[in-house]
Write a protein that binds this DNA or RNA. Structure first.
Length: 587
RNA sequence: GCCCCUGUAGCUCAAUGGACAGAGCACCGGACUUCUAAUCCGAUGGUUGUGAGUUCGAGUCUCACCAGGGGCGCCA
């Protein structure tokens, strides 16, 4: 937000260096880390070290302090700053609160929902996430890709990218045929009840159970798969109908979670074109056809002339000529760039176990000469497991259904709101419970490193206290409450000609950071940073709330604080929206 | 055997190569006649797995080791 000022100071420092025969300084702005202070700083260790490397006899720390001090003298106090000081090799510039408080607050209020939003980059990216298997349950293990992908999409869009949100359901495969087999034999003619996904999942579990008890029935499954493969209309029709049931169920879940998609790709649609693509690879000598004794493989390390195992071997077609995931992934990657030739990036939010797989697929495409291959990027995340490192598996029945988690979370939130705010109407209570319950589920998925394992347990997942979504939502609600009583009409912009309290400084400081944080988080593909930012902002506001009365204070402080509340509430709303968490009107 | 990830307070996790490693939970002690206490304040709690290296400076980068998890030709 203070780019212009920063650039001016940088220019002056560079001019100083040039005039004094110093190497060109590497200037990196940081926030002054002391709380209660408000400004930016530059360290001069690098410049001093650069000099030392040029052969000058220098004590780096001492020289850094010397430089900071000299440059401090040279700069004087720049416009808009209150003071500057050279400490421990750092040059600290403290903003003039009167100037900057006003600017930050005015900007946030004026820009409204656009506050923190990056300028349009004119770049289109695709985020593929949440690849659920149809005909199976949707459980808590599937939650991370959905929430992470959604958060990432929202972040990139807010940062200025044109984002295409893609889903890639696994709508064909052995699991689907198993389901169809079980349905035809034991549930023919049945229709799903209103809890579609649970019902679909239960039939799948039943199929697994029956096959375990009588493995000889596998032959029936294989035969059924062959009939699907021949596109027998009876089987294909049933497959399509039941697949749509599953998809309807998923859409209901996505809608409850507020996770939309722009584009659906289907596993089944990539099968044929995948086989064609593989044939092309064979013809060009990239894939080796070892049939009938072996499969069709791409020997990546051989092709690349690598001595050590790195990319190993990718199987692109089974020996019986049927497709596997790799076949379809090759085709899908190409389809995305056919649909959107201008994609600057094609992201895949898929769990970490498939890291090698994606490296192989992307490398194969690169070898095949697709120039966009290096624009594909896998974003791995760790699994959500049950205590004791038990992986959730529909087959094993070790799952917590998403449906159950959502219901439990919203029920608990409902109990709390009934207690805290009994005057709300029933509809309002339900709305609050939904916002809080869903938020509580989403936040912990976003607020940790992708590479860290999540162990699911009910107590933690339903904890509304501390660093969690309800805390942030509550801060938003409190802000709204003040504004409702203090007059929603924005007061005139106020330049504080009075001393600001530490709580106000801290809050304004955080407000000012939002645009930077958005760009930083988007640049590193880390919704985590926005999750922590939103929490920090909420904490600063709660702190302000307890320390600084707004409505009962005299003018002009009252107007100033009212506007500060307005600005903060906007920043909280934008941050929550960025995380895909609803900001409720009351709690 | 090769490769990847993780290791930070009792627990769950943060931390742009920079200034005193921060939060939450739990535990202990306080604050509702006030703009909503789903809040706030205070106390306790650390040889950042171990050892070396790079650097003016390392939780962060490199290497080795230890511990846990994952991946490695026809599963998805």
């Amino acid at each position: 937000m203070f780019d212009a000022e920063q650039r001016q100071i940088e220019e002056k420092i560079n001019a100083f260096c040039a005039a004094n025969g110093l190497p060109e300084a590497v200037l990196q702005w940081k926030w002054i880390p002391f709380s209660g202070h408000w400004g930016i700083s530059i360290a001069f260790f690098q410049l001093a070290a650069l000099e030392a490397r040029q052969g000058k006899k220098i004590q780096v720390n001492q020289r850094a302090q010397e430089l900071a001090s000299q440059i401090s003298d040279h700069l004087g106090i720049p416009v808009g700053f209150e003071k500057l000081e050279a400490v421990n090799g750092y040059l600290n510039l403290y903003f003039d609160p009167a100037v900057y408080a006003r600017r930050v607050i005015d900007t946030a209020i004026e820009q409204g929902t656009g506050f923190g939003r990056g300028a349009d980059r004119g770049e289109r990216v695709m985020v593929e996430f949440s690849q659920p298997n149809t005909h199976k349950a949707f459980h808590v293990g599937h939650l991370r890709s959905a929430i992470l992908g959604d958060g990432l999409s929202r972040l990139l869009a807010f940062a200025g990218y044109d984002v295409i949100r893609a889903n890639y359901p696994g709508d064909i495969g052995l699991h689907v045929i198993k389901w169809l087999w079980c349905y035809r034999n034991y549930h023919a003619g049945e229709k799903p009840d209103k809890d579609i996904t649970r019902w679909m999942g239960s039939i799948y579990a039943e199929a697994s159970r029956r096959l375990e008890e009588a493995p000889e029935l596998e032959a029936e499954i294989r035969e059924l798969y062959a009939r699907w493969d021949r596109r027998e209309s009876e089987i294909v029709d049933l497959w399509k109908e039941t697949r749509d049931w599953s998809l309807d169920g998923f859409k209901e879940i996505y809608s409850r979670l507020d996770i939309p998609f722009d584009r659906y790709y289907f596993n089944s649609e990539e099968e044929q074109s995948g086989k064609v693509l593989v044939n092309d690879l064979i013809a060009r000598g990239i894939a080796s056809d070892e049939r009938p004794d072996g499969a069709v493989v791409v020997k990546l390390d051989n092709l690349l002339g690598l001595k050590n195992d790195k990319y190993r071997v990718l199987v692109v077609l089974r020996s019986d000529g049927t497709a596997l995931y790799a076949t379809e992934d090759l085709s899908l990657a190409r389809r995305k760039f056919t649909d959107y030739p201008d994609l600057a990036k094609s992201y895949y939010v898929v769990d970490v176990r498939q890291s090698l797989h994606f490296q192989q697929v992307f490398k194969t495409l690169e070898i095949a000469g697709y120039e966009w291959a290096n624009r594909c990027q896998h974003i791995p995340y760790e699994l959500v497991t049950l205590p004791g490192n038990v992986v959730m598996a529909s087959r094993e029945g070790t799952v917590v259904l998403l449906e159950d988690l959502i219901t439990e979370a919203t029920d608990r939130a409902y109990e709390v709101v009934k207690l805290k705010n009994p005057d709300l109407t029933e509809a309002q209570k339900r709305a609050v419970a939904r916002a809080v319950g869903i938020g509580a589920i989403k936040y912990p998925m976003l607020a940790r490193e992708n590479t860290k394992l999540v162990t699911f347990d009910w107590e933690t997942a339903l904890d509304f206290n501390g660093q969690a979504a309800p805390y942030i939502q509550y801060a938003f609600v409190r802000g709204g409450s003040i504004l409702r009583k203090g007059g929603v009409e924005p007061a005139e912009s106020v330049s504080p000609a009075f001393e600001l309290t530490a709580a106000e400084l801290e809050l304004i400081d955080l407000l000012a950071r939002l645009p930077n944080e958005v760009q930083r988080a988007a640049g590193e593909l880390r919704p985590l940073w926005m999750a922590t930012y939103a929490y920090d902002l909420a904490r600063a506001f709660n702190d302000f709330y307890t320390q600084c009365p707004v409505l009962q204070v005299e003018e002009p402080v009252r107007s100033f604080r009212l506007r500060l509340v307005m600005a903060t509430r906007q920043a909280l709303a934008n941050s929550l929206a960025l995380l895909g968490i609803t900001a409720p009107q009351a709690m």
